[in-house]
Design a protein around this nucleic acid. Structure first.
Lengths: 187, 187
DNA sequence: GTCTATAGATTGATAGAC
DNA sequence: GTCTATCAATCTATAGAC
């Protein structure tokens, strides 16, 4: 694997674990086994490398979610699959964790992967909810977009609860609560 | 106001806006109008001051939530009041935002205010849900603790969605989705 | 209690050799 | 393309005067 590729993957790992402010170019270079000159040859600076790494992480997450949401099953089954998807809870969400970084969200290029990921996810889940309503599976009269955003928010907030508690159980409790509320919508 | 007090309040503001890694002792001192010596006289260091500031912020948030949850109204009304509470959405949650900071959650003293806040909040909301079930207002058979965690997670995740989008609407959409799902539990 | 001076380490970036 | 050397600025903390 070439140096550019190692730099991007190292940046993905460190950004996930330590965030944008907490990740120094030096730390990325060390992990990648590359020198200063190598990084500044391939990228204009920290922001440029972070943007590249973050975009790749966002693309991966989106592909993973589509794998569940575009699969077989009823609307409720697919929503449940999304909520119960196996996750490395205590590591946090590799995309959503960056929403708290003021420098990152202030830079449109750095915020773009976040905006795209959650914009797409909310829209995609809203489609699934609407399909369930049209199929007579889910009760009509509730806004599909609102339910979809609540589902995505439950997952993102679940990470906050789990990391605050220092254990993964609160994440599972929250997502199971969402599953229960969605299930009640079928009866 | 004395220097110690100004340091704590300045730390509260900066921690909310920039997080733990993003806040330097120097920045706190400047905002407080205090010198190095003043800060290191009152506190052993950055972590000690941050812990004091964070604990005070957590106490304030808890008191604010109890004001809504302990007030009058049915269970659904109080849960809805919590979800619709006016918030400075794009500033993020002054407590939950710190769950993403690896250095903060790694330090038990710094993580304690987070663990206490969300532990208490989840338990308190679970009581309200259970009251609603006993009063025949909310459908029985769903786990009060799970619904409570889902509600708290929706709020915390709503901040993530809003900050990722650069606008407050996704927060409102998510919390309204939660209101709709809870309302469906009454019918 | 509060100040200034200072310290060693780290940050993000540039220069220039190879 | 990749390396080492160097840079000014900032980080967190300590020392010691007042």
């Amino acid at each position: 694997m070439n140096a550019r590729e190692r730099l991007v993957e190292s940046a993905q790992d460190l950004l996930w674990e330590r965030g944008y402010v907490g990740t120094s170019p030096r730390a990325i270079q060390d992990r990648a086994g590359a020198g200063q000159g190598s990084m500044y040859h391939h990228f204009t600076g920290k922001a440029d490398l972070a943007r590249t790494a973050l975009q790749r992480t966002a693309d991966r997450e989106r592909a993973g979610a589509e794998g569940l949401l575009g699969g077989p099953g009823t609307a409720l089954e697919r929503l449940t699959a999304y909520l119960r998807r196996e996750r490395e809870v205590l590591r946090g969400c590799p995309v959503g964790r960056h929403a708290q970084d003021p420098d990152l969200v202030a830079d449109p290029d750095l915020r773009a992967p976040l905006e795209e990921t959650f914009g797409w996810l909310r829209g995609r889940l809203a489609e699934v909810v609407a399909e369930g309503q049209q199929a007579g599976e889910l009760r009509p009269g509730v806004d599909p977009a609102a339910v979809a955003s609540a589902v995505v928010a439950t997952v993102q907030g679940g990470y906050v609860l789990a990391r605050s508690a220092g254990r993964p159980e609160p994440f599972t409790e929250a997502t199971e609560g969402a599953v229960a509320l969605l299930t009640a919508l079928t009866r």
